[in-house]
Nucleic acid binder design. Structure first.
Lengths: 207, 207
DNA sequence: AGATTAACATGACATTTGTCATAATATATG
DNA sequence: CATATATTATGACAAATGTCATGTTAATCT
């Protein structure tokens, strides 16, 4: 299993090399220090796995990965990140990187490389939970648990569209005062303060 | 590293056991044949990793995973699937499963277990590309095209959280009247009527 | 220096909003 | 039938909101 290591920080790069070479299956066949190194080394050596830092001068790991994958779609690239609250995760997934793990997780790097080598994708720690689809997980909002009736839900939906009380009243054939009362009750039930918070609640919790 | 194996098919379960036990770091400390086994074995043994088939009679691997994770949120569960075009992937991610790989990928299972044991998440083959996020284009809202300055964007974001003028004023060290004026200008620029519409705009177009 | 502009503030005002007490009507339930 | 209960409505009131004209200060430009 031939691996290339690319990291801005010489010390980190050497530490990684030591860790990887302690495993008999792995051979470190190249080392670089920035994204441009990564691209040229990759083309020259065509390793089994490219282990690369994300934040580097000259060319970021993300850009290097993009360039490499555009030419070698099956490239197995494992990116290293420093913090788990990393916003690059979606970009990395879009580019087609095979892994994205925390640099600090020394023990995890070897198994991650092996898994990537086998064609799997690996994501460190909390990183998976940062993927937006999952955050906007339906959250299974339950109207019953808030004791909201059908009409109240109608009204909430309209507030969530930015409608005024008068507009809501007209569309439901109610008086404006009635709508005001409904909203007052809804705010009480949901422990909210005003219609703006209700709109925010609707859009973030009920959609 | 203590692992439980749960698979509908006795033969597969035994094969897996043989593969895993060939690795000196792994100890198979339990075997089951359906979701209910998985739940009871998990509670009894509390293994480091639970390796489980998805499709099983009595109780599916997905349901079992859900039940286990609701009680043990840190449970490391690796699900096995037969086909890579598997639609359960998003559900699995939402439930909080730590891995989802192809049963056929015999060579990949051991590294996958080790990576999961280290706290990483592993997804086999093409599975990652099935995650819907990747197809969603971000709205790419351009503040400049609406002629909004930095402070206005700050205020919009706070309206989008449901804050009152007073709260916004306090957080930005402005007077309430000033915030009112800012919002009045913002509404004009965005052709909106009130703060609720602004919150809706923010949440749907700017996030 | 004089003029201009940006950032922040005030006060007055109309409107909208949220709360509350109360009540009319219809429907259901005993 | 009598009594709940749900639905809708009113009016009064306070508070928050949005608009507008105007003012202050400090920085910038000519």
């Amino acid at each position: 299993m031939r691996v290339i290591i690319v990291d801005d920080d010489q010390i980190v790069a050497m530490s990684l090399k030591t860790i990887l070479e302690a495993d008999s299956e792995i051979e470190v066949c190249g080392c670089g220090n920035d994204g441009e190194d990564a691209v040229s080394l990759y083309k020259e050596i065509i390793p089994d796995v490219l282990l690369m830092d994300i934040q580097m001068k000259k060319m970021s790991g993300l850009d290097a990965a993009k360039e490499i994958i555009s030419e070698y779609p099956d490239a197995r690239i494992l990116l290293l990140t420093t913090f788990s609250d990393d916003e690059y995760i979606v970009n990395a997934l879009e580019i087609g990187v095979k892994g994205y793990i925390l640099k600090q997780d020394f023990d995890g790097i070897v198994p991650a490389i092996k898994a990537v080598y086998r064609g799997q994708s690996v994501f460190g720690g909390e990183i998976v939970s940062k993927i937006p689809v999952l955050k906007q997980s339906k959250s299974e909002f339950d109207a019953a648990s808030y004791d909201l009736c059908e009409k109240e839900l109608d009204i909430i939906a309209q507030v969530g569209l930015g409608k005024s009380n008068k507009e809501i009243a007209d569309s439901l054939f109610l008086s404006e005062g009635t709508v005001r009362n409904y909203i007052s009750v809804i705010l009480e039930k949901l422990s909210l303060r005003d219609r703006t918070q209700l709109a925010v609640f609707y859009l973030t919790k009920m959609c």
